[in-house]
């Protein structure tokens, strides 16, 4: 499989940071009561993650191993501060809705995790692809859950009121926890089912090839 395709699929699906690795749970539970906030948080993480992966990968041979974590933290904190300034200046609504969670991106496990596990060992391009893939995986997961929670919890979608019926609890962090659990279960079930189907298909193909080879012999 193409290297970049594998990195992309890993970040998006097989090692999805939210559904498979259960990382970045704090903003996930705090923000998914609003689809707009969750998508905004996802996109902000995507940008910070991609930039931090690129910078850390580019500097990986310069930064001594003993101080790599403090250096990563400084780089990530700088990028997050820049993201805060940018959002406050140009997207104030999103800045207000993200509140304290924006600053907490500094300690987001996904960003530090990818820096340590991937960007530290791979080239700039691969790290950039990994950052985009993981960021997209996080954004998609948050947006899906945000849509579910906002629709059922507030009867609206991206702030637009759609129906009167609502289950108030789903718009709270406790309800978000419930939706998060259900989403993980569904996601893992689908991935497992797909993997099983792929294995069966591969076995069938291998068996057919074997039979063909025997017949030919």
């Amino acid at each position: 499989m193409n290297k970049y395709k594998k990195i992309t699929l890993d970040g998006l699906i097989y090692q999805n940071p939210t559904f498979m690795l259960v990382l970045g749970t704090c903003p996930t539970l705090g923000l998914i009561s609003s689809a707009f906030s969750s998508m905004g948080m996802g996109l902000t993480v995507l940008v910070v993650l991609t930039l931090s992966n690129i910078i850390i990968s580019a500097l990986r041979k310069v930064i001594p191993g003993a101080v790599r974590i403090p250096c990563y933290i400084v780089i990530i904190a700088t990028l997050v501060t820049f993201a805060r300034m940018f959002l406050e200046k140009f997207v104030p609504d999103l800045y207000d809705s993200l509140g304290g969670f924006l600053a907490l991106i500094v300690v987001n496990c996904i960003i530090l995790g990818r820096a340590e596990a991937f960007a530290n060992k791979n080239g700039v391009l691969e790290s950039a692809v990994d950052g985009v893939a993981n960021g997209l995986g996080f954004t998609l997961a948050l947006t899906i859950m945000g849509v579910i929670c906002e629709f059922l919890g507030k009867g609206s979608l991206f702030g637009l009121q759609i129906m009167e019926f609502k289950i108030g609890m789903l718009a709270t962090p406790a309800g978000a926890f419930l939706v998060y659990g259900i989403c993980i279960a569904v996601f893992v079930y689908i991935i497992d089912g797909f993997e099983r189907w792929r294995r069966v298909k591969a076995n069938k193909l291998a068996r057919e090839n074997l039979l063909n080879a025997k017949e030919a012999a």
Binding site: V62, I63, P64, V67, V74, F82
Partner: peptide, 15 residues
């Protein structure tokens, strides 16, 4: 280590 950290901090601060 000291030099690297100082450089990273300085560049970040200036940025």
């Amino acid at each position: 280590c000291i030099l690297t950290l100082t450089c990273v901090l300085l560049i970040s601060g200036i940025f």
